[in-house]
Design a binder for these strands. Structure first.
Lengths: 109, 109
DNA sequence: GCACACTACTGTGCAATGCACAATAGTGGC
DNA sequence: GCCACTATTGTGCATTGCACAGTAGTGTGC
């Protein structure tokens, strides 16, 4: 099973969760998601998600120059983003519970 | 957050899990999924998923006449389907664990 | 100086899939 | 006859993750 389809609709949540910890720029968010276990996440997906969330008014954005490469566009949560994170996390937990319940007859291995 | 996006890539798994319990026809699978907590699942999604899984060789299919309405096209798991269910369930559990870990800093309410 | 690797962002176009909606059709109650 | 419920199929759309290409800055090794 391709885990890329599992990400649909959850990448927003994952990105919000990562940014809740601390502000980050695209390349950095990709790295943090992969370290967290989402190893197959594509960089274009993350950049796209950040832009979408920003356009939706959930993120702040500011550019910082770097002396180790190109400039970095940092993103951070604002109130809309924090509230989106809360409700999305709630929706996710309830959904995951439902799925786990459905799967309780399926042997773990 | 629209839970419809959460279903992406998971509806296959949910349908397989429901059919693992016992064979079922489309309309019945929709009802069982809704009773299980997936209240917003669309009927066209389920019919589409059943056809897709059948085309992929994971399901058997047979038509049964009904005296309470139109005929019913039953679907059931074959070996491919059972193996798909196992690996998909494993992928889901690992993915859900990763997400829950990412969300552990987010207050539950 | 130049090739290359790593960092970092943007844009285009595609594939997968859940869903709305319409059409078809059988049964039964009023 | 009309309507509600059951049951399946097909069309077309919206969302979204991703591959890929392009641009660009920094540092390393030759």
């Amino acid at each position: 099973m391709d885990s890329s389809q599992l990400l649909k609709g959850v990448l927003d949540l994952a990105v919000l969760a990562v940014l809740a910890d601390r502000d980050g720029y695209g390349y950095d968010v990709v790295r943090r998601l992969r370290e967290a276990g989402l190893e197959d996440v594509g960089d274009a997906s993350v950049y796209g998600t950040l832009r979408r969330l920003f356009r939706a008014g959930a993120l702040t954005s500011y550019v910082v120059a770097s002396d180790e490469g190109p400039h970095r566009k940092y993103y951070g949560l604002n109130d809309v983003g924090r509230s989106l994170l809360d409700t999305s996390a709630k929706t996710w937990r309830s959904f995951a519970d439902t799925m786990n319940d459905l799967l309780k007859e399926v042997p773990s291995s």
